[in-house]
Structures are given as C-alpha cells and as structure tokens.
Design a protein around this nucleic acid. Sequence first.
DNA 1: GCCTTTGTTGGAAGCGCTTCCAATTCACGA
DNA 2: TCGTGAATTGGAAGCGCTTCCAACAAAGGC
Lengths: 347, 347
Amino acid sequence: MTARRPTIDDVARLSGVARTTVSRVLNDGPNVRDEVRARVMEAVRTLDYKVNPQARSLAGGGSRLLGLVFASDLESEPNSFYHSALELGALRGCLELGYQLVTRHIPLQSADREQQVYDLIATQRCEGLIFTPPYSDDAALIAEVLRRGCKVVSISPGGAGRGLADGVGMDDEAGGYDIARRLIELGHRRFAFMGGIEGHLSADRRLDGLMRALSEAGLGQGDLIQVRGDFTFRSGVELTPGLLDDPLHPTALVCANDDMAAGALSVVHGRGVKVPQDLSVTGFDDTPVSAIVWPPLTTVHQPLKDMGRRAVALLASRLTGGRSEAEPEFDCLDHAVVERGTAASAP
Amino acid sequence: MTARRPTIDDVARLSGVARTTVSRVLNDGPNVRDEVRARVMEAVRTLDYKVNPQARSLAGGGSRLLGLVFASDLESEPNSFYHSALELGALRGCLELGYQLVTRHIPLQSADREQQVYDLIATQRCEGLIFTPPYSDDAALIAEVLRRGCKVVSISPGGAGRGLADGVGMDDEAGGYDIARRLIELGHRRFAFMGGIEGHLSADRRLDGLMRALSEAGLGQGDLIQVRGDFTFRSGVELTPGLLDDPLHPTALVCANDDMAAGALSVVHGRGVKVPQDLSVTGFDDTPVSAIVWPPLTTVHQPLKDMGRRAVALLASRLTGGRSEAEPEFDCLDHAVVERGTAASAP
DNA sequence: GCCTTTGTTGGAAGCGCTTCCAATTCACGA
DNA sequence: TCGTGAATTGGAAGCGCTTCCAACAAAGGC
C-alpha cells in the first residue's frame, strides 16, 4: 500500500516550523517572514502536499457556502448548456477548495428578485455569490450584496459590473478579431456579421474585433454587412436569406453565437449553397451544437467551465486569502478558435 | 443571527443517548435496539438535523474519492452535453455527501485502457467508480474492479452490466411507449422510427416501447417503417428523405435521440414540409439542441443530472451504509415527455 | 535605558464526526 | 443461583485543519 497523503504536520516538521505557521503560509496570512514562507513552500513542493478541504472547512468555521445566481427561468430552459457548463466549473472549484454550492435561478421578471438574492445571504448564509448576466451588471444589486458583507464575482460583466466586484470572462474583442483574422487568411474579402441584441456588450465587442481585423487588412465598412439577431436559432434562420441576397455577396458569415450560426447553416443548405466551398460560416462559444450541426461548425471556444471554476477561486481568495479588501480584479481567460468544418478558402 | 446548525451532540442530548449511538443509527450500524433507534430518528426529525459531510469524511478515514469514467476522447468532444450533465450531477452528489470526484476520459481504443482504470484504484485511491456506456456493460472489467475492492455503479447498463454491480438509468421502453402514446392520441396512425446503431440496447428498447403502443392501438408492423442511424445530426439528414418518400407516407417521425431529430428537421424544412402541421417529429434525451432547433423539439427528457447524482449516492451507500455486501440494485429514474413544438394533430 | 508598539512564531483548543475499546446489561443453560 | 457469551451502550481518541491567545524578538519613542 502506498503511504498516506502528507498532512500539514508533515510539512511543519520538514520545514521546521509550527503547524500554525504553515497554515498561515497556505492561507496567504500576514506576518510571516519571506524566508520562512519560502522554506514552507519548498516543503510543500517536496512532499507534494495538498490541503485537505474537508478538514479545512471543518476547522474554518463559517458556512463555506457559495451561491450561483442565474437570471433565467429554470423551467423554461432546464437543459441549457450555458448553465450546465458554468455550474459544472463552479462545482469543480468548490470540490477542490472545500466549499458548498447552491445554484439559484431567479427570473428577471420576479417582483421580489432582489429579496431572493438577499435571502441567499441571510437565510442560506452564503458567504459569496456568483452573478451571471445580466445580474453581473446590476450595480445597485451588487453594491447592496457587498454592503451586507457577502463577496461577489461577476461572470462576463460588460459595464457597471466591472469596477464594483471581481469578474471573470474572456476577451470578446480578441475572439472576434481572431476568427476574422483566420477568415482573411483564407482569402475572404466580403463579410457578413450577425450580431446580438442591442446592448449586449460582449456581442458588440466581438464585432469590434472583426472590424479591427478588417481594417488591418485594408478593408472597411463597405466590405461588411451587418444585422442584429437575438441569439436564437430562429433569428439565424430569419436573417440569413437577406444576407445571401445582398449585393455585396459575402463569402464569409460571422455569427455572434453558435445557435444563430446553426440557423444560418440550415437556410444555406436549403438553398443549395455549399458550406464551406461557396460560403464560410462561423459561430461563437463552442457549445455542443457546434459539433452537432453539419458540417461541424468552426467557432470560438469560450471557456465556460473554467469561468465557473475561476469564479469560485476568486471568491475563495476573497474569503480567506489576503485579498479580502483588495481592489476588484477582472480575470480574463483564454479563448481559442476551434477549426471544424465550416471555414475554408474563399471561392 | 440565526442559530447554528444542530450537531450530532444536540441529537444525542435530545434523545438521551451517547454520540456514538447516534452515529450508529445514522450509519445503519448494527446492535441498536429498535426503541433507541426510533428515539434517535425522532430527535433527528425534531431538530432537522443533517450530518456534516466534511466532518464525517474527516473522521471516517479513507480517500473518499470517486471516479467517473467516460469512454469518449475528451479532445474530440470536449463540450458534449451528455458528459457535462452526468458530471454535473455526480459533482452535486459528491458535494452533498462529502466525496471528491475525478473524471477520466479513457478512449476505447487505448491499448492500456484497463490499466488506466486500475490506476484510478491503485494510484489515485478511488473507493468507487462510475462507468458510463459502453464500459457499463464490460463485465470482465467490472468484475476485476470489484475484485480489487472498489465499488462500481453502471450508468444505463444494457446487458452484462446489470447483475454485476449497481446501476442507474431510465426505463427506455416506457419512454418510447410514452412518446408514441402521445402521438397516437394526436391521431397519428402511420409512423417512422429512426433508431440507433445495431446493438445499442437502450435505443432498441425505445423502439420496443413504440411497438407496444402501436399494437395497443390496433396498429402493426405495416404502419411503421424503420431505419437505423448512428445518433448523429448527419445521419438524420441522410435518412430522412427516404422516410419522406416512402409509400407509407408517415405522419409522425420518432427519432431515437435529439441530434438525429434535428437533422431530420433541417431536411424537412428544406423540402417545404411544415412541422408540425404536415409532419410531427420527436426526439429523445432532451439535450439543449432540442430547445435550439426550430420549431423546438418535442422529446423525452432523460434525467442525466439525476443519474449522475444517484450514481454517487449508490456508491456512498455501498461504502458506508449497510449495503456494502447487498445484492446489486438497479435504480430506475423517472423520465418525462417534454412537449415543445414538433408534435401536433395528424393532418 | 526602559516601556510600548509592531511583527513573528508557537501552543492548544476545538470544528463534527467515526471508531476502537471498555463497560454494562440481558438472556439462558447449568 | 451463578456464570457466560452476546447484544447493546458509552468514553475517549483523533481525523487535518484554523484560529485564539500567549510568548517572544525587534524596533522605536520618551
């Protein structure tokens, strides 16, 4: 049998300090000399020591409970990938760090939605909350939650949410730029962009990135037509014919999410237009739909699971680490263009 | 401030026994008089006591680590809803019951796949493993894992996996029956069934259910045409034209999963056939695709998240409860027909 | 040069639970 | 009636960690 996992006392013994000091180092506590801190970290590395989250949470007191708040009505979309992926990531984080998680769907139209959030703090005793859009930009709500002593992380905050609390997201502008860049490399010169609803900031930023890539390639407004959809498959279906018939005759259609791209694909098929030979189509987010449609969709991967996990990590560092009063920080995660089958050389 | 949660000592005090005895009752231990057991349970109910999983796992020893084993290559389908939903459920269960989870994707084509599973036991020290199809029917593997003292739960076992170890799944036959029943109520009399690959047992059972509903309605083989796909969107696209052109002229197309139904929908659209006015189409599983296509897909909800959670609960009961040597048990979860927009009265 | 302040470290008590082991009770046969 | 083994119960140690508090050293302030 392999030896049991090392404990904090093993680390203490090896580094020649008391258990208390090791704990302090592990939790970014104050008042430890750099030399001692380094020695302890060295021992941690040597032993490959990992804290036992169960023990930590037992000893640490507090509820160790975090809340994940969605705006949508769970009844209406119980199997959304967006929700599942974020929660999955958050749960992974909680398991690693010894936290518990409650997930709450609070529809925007609930009259008492603020109250429901406050109940999460008062009744459930959540020590931290993760807000998803559009709660992540509700400045008044966030401020009040913070005032009540509960930590907050915003997922993909666009505007107001940014400076108030910690945030997690990706660089949407760069995502748009990258996918456009790829299409330009493939020889495309005439573009169509299917955006999201007015005011959805991250989708707008994706367009910004596309524009930047265009202008770098010496292209301009005249080489792009754009329309706004509402992120649904249906709006993709409805908007695509107009784009295909446009005198600009775009050879690449960039969509602000996968669902609209899937809608576009279905229309394009019906018209006998070949993808990607005649037309390249790209999505955004890399949800499971992108692998399901035919041809499989070239898209930009948004790291939803990592975002959930990082959100928990940020809350944890606020709650125990030295960051409890630090300036809000935005954690920008990597994205990646996922090449599947819908982007090819311009005809 | 609300009072803190009751502890085992509160229960002990209220029921007038020692902490040890309460622990025994809570863990289905032997040697407790029925009268005492009842008294303790009564106190538990009065105080609304819940065990603290962190404390239990700290005290209980053991790694408290479970493994979730998928057959697929994570690289090739990193964002599959099937995987996410099962893991999500398993994580929820682990958090509730104080277990840790490692998720491992071991492709079937790996030469050392068995070895990788055994490493999960030997090196990682997993106390229990959750196998998804087709590992869930690999009798030799399961037997060997059990022999090594590691508990096993099979997800949706079809054949061999059933008697060997505990299992979790849904009643696929009933699911097929229910959706067919609904279509018959809507007046449909001529059916098409798009099945899965040969030997995929749960998809075959869905067909069995369909057949039962047909015969109950006085219909027979002559009122049904069937084809086999491979569960992909693409196969839905390829097989649908043949079904539409069949002389039977079905008014309802029942698909063995959502992806194929989505493929069928896209073909049907292209042909100008109206769904659901001219043709009803149904899916199976209720993955996010079903809400994304247009019209949104009427389908059968498979409780993947609950399956993951139940799998963990079963392992937990094997590991601590009195069930450690009990007969294997199959936990059959509820399914439900989800009425969206693709099933309507027969034309 | 002595007293306070500030910074750094260790000792020890517990968090809520399981479990080993000892103590007590009970039922029976001798 | 007493002894014996089995059934039942309780005492107490300790899982791995955080944290309160005391101890001590270094650094200023008068």
